[in-house]
Design a protein around this nucleic acid. Sequence first.
DNA 1: CGCCCGCGAACGAACGTTCGCCTTTTTTCT
DNA 2: AGAAAAAAGGCGAACGTTCGTTCGCGGGCG
Lengths: 218, 218
Amino acid sequence: MSIIPSDSPPARLPLAERRRRILETAVQVYAQHGFHQTGMRQLCAALGMSAGALYRYFPGKESIIAGLVEMDREMIQHNLRSLPPDVSFIGTMQHMLEVTMGELQTNEGLLAIWSEISSEATRNPAVAALLSNHYQFIENLISSLVQAALKRGELRDGVDPLATARFIMASHDGMMTRRAIDPTYPLQQVARESLGLLACAVGATPPVALKTPARKQP
Amino acid sequence: MSIIPSDSPPARLPLAERRRRILETAVQVYAQHGFHQTGMRQLCAALGMSAGALYRYFPGKESIIAGLVEMDREMIQHNLRSLPPDVSFIGTMQHMLEVTMGELQTNEGLLAIWSEISSEATRNPAVAALLSNHYQFIENLISSLVQAALKRGELRDGVDPLATARFIMASHDGMMTRRAIDPTYPLQQVARESLGLLACAVGATPPVALKTPARKQP
DNA sequence: CGCCCGCGAACGAACGTTCGCCTTTTTTCT
DNA sequence: AGAAAAAAGGCGAACGTTCGTTCGCGGGCG
């Protein structure tokens, strides 16, 4: 049984895995009550872990916050990189929206955490720096997508790639924030309609039927 | 002197005025470090007031938060109501943006406070209810503006008033949040460009020159 | 005098963090 | 291979602070 290399994983989960599990639990706990209203004891209880054990993985509460930002960033950037490259610009945006919303349904806490991170970034320079890089990355990505679509003649001439990217990001973040506040906000519907408006704004053909999007199908 | 009602203000500021001063100071203090990281002692120090005195005006910290939400809401709704009614839809939106940005320059803390309030609303039902009403009000207002513009034939047929209102609000909130995080975010420029894109989305004529908005004038 | 108003020390609770001790796993040495 | 040593992982009481809040008291004004 010793000569088989494939079936000898470490009995314990590797350190990185346990860190990840802590962060995932932290999302759930912090999303319910917020960073600063949630004590380490509550997080420990949710983890089934003692305070001393937790401090072996994170040197302090601040670093847990930073870890959360990093995790969200990695997840979103991973989603962005896995875009199908052969579809139209609006189709790509639609795909992005669908992936994001699928993940939101899986993990309800992500919305609230994102709002929490945003307000943390307004006063914590370390978090702000992480977020700025993140936004820069998305801005560049969407911007280049617009440029490519322009070269394909898919969009109206004169459309500014950077301005469009910023506009899309602002709309996206605004919808998500609003939904985080109000669970009855029809995010799916608003996203669909906004995509239609965006298509008109850049002079593209709407993704599917735009008029009367989901009222009735004659 | 008793029969003259107009010129007999109390020597001390009325209670409401002192409450207002407390809230305005709270905006400055909380914007720097956040609600939950700022103790009552800090707020008292900024006010030049003792804890006991402060508790005569607000029964607790939670009610200060609620007061802040209410104050912001009143301010924004006041701005919205004072719109000039005789200009185009896009012109009205431009006016709204300018008023908002003017106030942001006057009071730097408002941006951070808004972000703070948003994340507070995701878990504090009282705050969430206040904010929901607020959003509902704005949604209705913009929605009716779109309807009026549609009747004037100013916008493309088929534009959905509610969807447009939500789209505008999401973009607006997204821009503000982003600016709160990153002080180098060119809010003025993004707002101008977004307005242009919005105009295209609803089929209106852009507010001023849209193409190459501020690069060069041939 | 009665009455607001303001003060600031004091309260119990909860905070983030530390530390000494125990158990479990891994390594090292006969 | 098996015992001993070392390392790592986990625990939870305890620390010093700071939290939101209370309360008894004193001073100025009607």
